[in-house]
Design a protein around this nucleic acid. Structure first.
Length: 256
DNA sequence: ATGGTAGCCTTGCTA
């Protein structure tokens, strides 16, 4: 079972690249973030034309997450539990056979010292609480998405410049570690130990061409899913295209 | 040099 995650930075702007990725990579489930699109406006027919079902929550201009899948989603959950007042569409979760999969768009949190950073930390604590509940079921699950966290300095092209960025601050990293310490596995690090491998390159200042990026998109596996991990990699090809997203897909393969 | 780029459809916000 192939599971991929991609922050597309507008599903409408990225539609040709999205369809090309589905055709070429053939993921069983693709988790999207930053669709920037209400559910009613999502290009569902185009995805359906390639054999994919769509579940999505979204809004105009900001946020938005989706699950595209070859088999229909079951037991759909829209929104991260823990705060009924939080209306930002950043979390969608469903089951696909015996694997439960979430598309996660964790708040960026910049600038530090504002309510944006407070919101990020509170959101992460809700994710930790929710993950603790998921673990009780003792099933295979994958939390896939844009975490807006560089877990270590090895995941940043310039750790000094990013030391006080919301993506690297201790308060954010410690909550990411709390998530991992519940028993989750960073799928990429099972197969790749080398530093400076990235999933995001800023549009500005020629970051892509200089390979100056961040590793902020992650596939976190439950213990049962980690037992089944067969492969994981970052697919840099979509980032090299014209009119690319600033993120590129990451994928993993779970043994059936 | 507090810039630079992209997407939203605003004339600024978010990343």
């Amino acid at each position: 079972m192939k599971i991929a995650s991609w922050n597309v930075n507008s599903v409408k702007a990225r539609l040709p690249h999205l369809l090309a990725f589905l055709e070429e990579a053939q993921p069983d489930v693709l988790c999207l973030q930053e669709t920037k699109c209400p559910a009613a406006d999502f290009p569902t027919l185009e995805a359906k034309g390639l054999g994919y079902h769509v579940e999505t929550i979204g809004q105009r201009a900001y946020n938005g997450v989706a699950l595209l899948s070859k088999r229909p989603a079951e037991e759909l959950v829209c929104g991260l539990p823990g705060n009924e007042d939080d209306e930002q569409p950043r979390y969608i979760e469903a089951s696909f056979g015996d694997v439960r999969i979430a598309s996660v768009y964790l708040p960026n949190g910049n600038p530090v010292g504002t309510d944006k950073f407070t919101y990020k930390l509170a959101w992460m604590e809700r994710l930790v609480d929710h993950t603790r509940n998921l673990l009780r079921h003792e099933i295979s699950f994958v939390l896939a998405g844009d975490y807006n966290i560089c877990p270590t300095d090895d995941d940043v092209y310039d750790p000094v410049a990013f030391r006080d960025d919301a993506l690297c601050r201790l308060e954010a990293r410690s909550r990411f570690r709390a998530l991992v310490y519940l028993g989750l596995t960073d799928a990429y690090r099972v197969f790749h130990r080398e530093p400076h491998r990235y999933t995001f390159w800023d549009y500005q200042a020629g970051r892509w061409h200089r390979d100056e990026g961040l590793r902020i998109d992650h596939l976190l596996l439950s213990p049962h899913a980690a037992d089944r991990i067969a492969a994981c990699d970052i697919d840099k090809r979509p980032r090299a295209k014209e009119r690319a997203s600033d993120h590129t897909p990451i994928w993993c393969e779970l043994a059936v």
